[in-house]
């Protein structure tokens, strides 16, 4: 990733690279048990165009610096002929990352968090953390895992998306 002052040509090129990246990720995706699940990680790149305007776009997050925000997107599709039930997507939050409060997103899902390494999950509000012998409400920095529990079945051929952001410590 080089010059932040890209012209229009450079931006087109970047889009092309992004497309290629997405394609190669799809090729790597796991196809087991009739569900297809793919993860991507991106970050926001702020550029200033020739008119001096600030433009923001998502680019592949191959490299990050402390303080930078990354966005994880999990896409899943039922490629079988039957509905999938009790679909639960689980994603760890690496210890070098801090979850961005409120960033978890997943249409048709109930979003839950874990503060104990993924052993137990509960809603954001229900979680507490033991600190100096007494419980306090859990904060974004305490979360070790996120999971998305689909409220309804995932029909044959249907797909869904789960997303969250985190900041590199």
């Amino acid at each position: 990733m080089s010059d932040t002052r890209k012209g229009t040509d450079m931006k087109n090129l970047l889009s092309a690279i992004l497309l290629m990246t997405a394609m190669s990720v799809s090729a790597n995706a796991q196809e087991q048990g009739h569900l297809n699940v793919t993860t991507t990680v991106q970050k926001e790149q702020v550029t200033v165009n020739e008119a001096g305007e600030t433009e923001r776009q998502l680019v592949a997050a191959d490299t990050v610096v402390p303080g930078e925000k990354v966005i994880y997107t999990i896409t899943f599709q039922n490629i079988s002929d039957e509905p999938a039930e009790n679909v639960v997507i689980t994603n760890p939050i690496d210890e070098s990352l801090t979850y961005v409060d409120g960033s978890a997103f997943g249409p048709g899902t109930d979003i839950q968090f874990s503060v104990d390494g993924g052993q137990t999950f509960a809603s954001r509000e229900a979680l507490t953390v033991d600190e100096d012998g007494s419980d306090r409400p859990a904060e974004a920095k305490d979360f070790t895992h996120i999971r998305w529990v689909m409220q309804q079945e995932l029909a044959a051929g249907a797909q869904g998306t789960a997303r969250f952001s985190a900041v590199l410590k």
């Binding site: 990720v25 796991q30 048990g33 993860t39």
Partner: peptide, 25 residues
């Protein structure tokens, strides 16, 4: 980073994992 998906299909519970993304600091 690797995501995990568990689900029931035709009465069978299955768990699959996604590709693994890599970020270098």
């Amino acid at each position: 980073n690797t995501a995990t998906v568990s689900f029931d299909l035709a009465g069978t519970t299955l768990t699959i994992t996604s590709n693994t993304t890599t970020i270098t600091v």
